[in-house]
């Protein structure tokens, strides 16, 4: 029972981290019709910026938590203006190719600036150590990750359904021409959406910094996992990203505990099954 609860809490923390990455991927896909191969690289940038702000300059982790998404979003504006806006009318596979190129560029640049040694960020004192909860010792930071995932999820839900900016984004996603007719500046919305999705990835990187080794490989590791999440949940679907992240978190959290031999292959089997049985994903719209 204890190990079950431990695995459960771990799955949740892992799932929430994946959610923070997958949600941006899905927002960008939903509005821009782009699959962002470089999304993991943006997450990595968030972690490196957190390291630079929190450790190198000695400012606190809490400031880094705000700085990282903002800086990543600013970089994303440049990326969108220089590169991505040129290919919106192309087949979606072109976006995979262009963002793959972007992934190579960001990965190498990060290695250039920060070197390839491993960096670590200490969690703030208030979030280190463990507390006793549900009968076992829980790492405080794990609970913080879960809380952050839920807060971001709820905040985004409120934003998309309750604010004008959120509704504008959804309108632009549904029909570009119509949006333009009713006076929405579509190119501006697209830039904003890409920066927004990238910013959340940067936030995910900041959240991950105290629990992951910061290295140039962290982006490539997480991007395929994020693809699994959005495919299982449904490409472009907001609740899908949440559900997909929980499922992959559980596959990893329980799988490595109870089925270690199949640990590597299980996420891909899950991904393939969903694609074959319900290609739009568990929460995806059935008509495209």
């Amino acid at each position: 029972m204890e190990s079950f609860i431990a695995a459960l809490m771990n799955s949740l923390a892992l799932g929430m981290l994946l959610f923070l990455i997958a949600i941006g991927l899905n927002i960008i896909f939903g509005v821009l019709n782009i699959i962002n191969f470089a999304h993991g690289a943006l997450y990595m940038l968030g972690a490196y910026i957190t390291y630079t702000v929190a450790v190198l300059t000695g400012v606190s982790f809490w400031i880094a938590l705000f700085a990282a998404p903002l800086i990543v979003a600013a970089i994303a504006v440049v990326i969108e203006r220089v590169m991505l806006h040129r290919i919106y009318d192309r087949p979606i596979t072109d976006s995979l190719l262009l963002t793959f190129a972007l992934l190579l560029i960001i990965d190498e640049t990060v290695r250039w600036i920060w070197g390839s040694t491993i960096h670590v960020v200490d969690p703030p004192a208030s979030l280190s150590g463990t507390v006793r909860l549900l009968g076992i010792q829980q790492p405080v930071y794990g609970l913080f990750v879960i809380a952050m995932g839920l807060i971001v999820g709820l905040g985004l839900w409120g934003f998309f359904s309750g604010t004008r900016a959120g509704r504008v984004m959804r309108a632009a996603a549904i029909d570009r021409k119509m949006s333009r007719l009713v006076g929405i500046d579509v190119p501006l919305v697209f830039t904003a959406v890409f920066a927004f999705g990238a910013g959340i990835a940067g936030f995910g990187g900041a959240i991950a910094a105290p629990i992951r080794a910061i290295s140039p490989a962290m982006g490539a590791n997480i991007i395929v996992e994020s693809f699994i999440v959005v495919v299982i949940g449904g490409l472009g679907s907001f609740p899908g990203a949440f559900l997909g992240a929980l499922i992959l978190g559980a596959i990893n959290g329980f799988g490595s505990r109870y089925l270690p031999e199949l640990n590597l292959v299980m996420p891909y089997i899950g991904m393939a099954l969903v694609l074959l049985l319900k290609p739009q994903g568990l929460m995806g719209r059935t008509a495209s």
């Binding site: 695995a7 962290m218 490595s256």
Partner: peptide, 12 residues
């Protein structure tokens, strides 16, 4: 990236 399940296995 996540060693928690393995750490928990050893502890239990």
């Amino acid at each position: 990236e996540d060693f928690t399940p393995f750490i928990n296995t050893v502890i239990s």
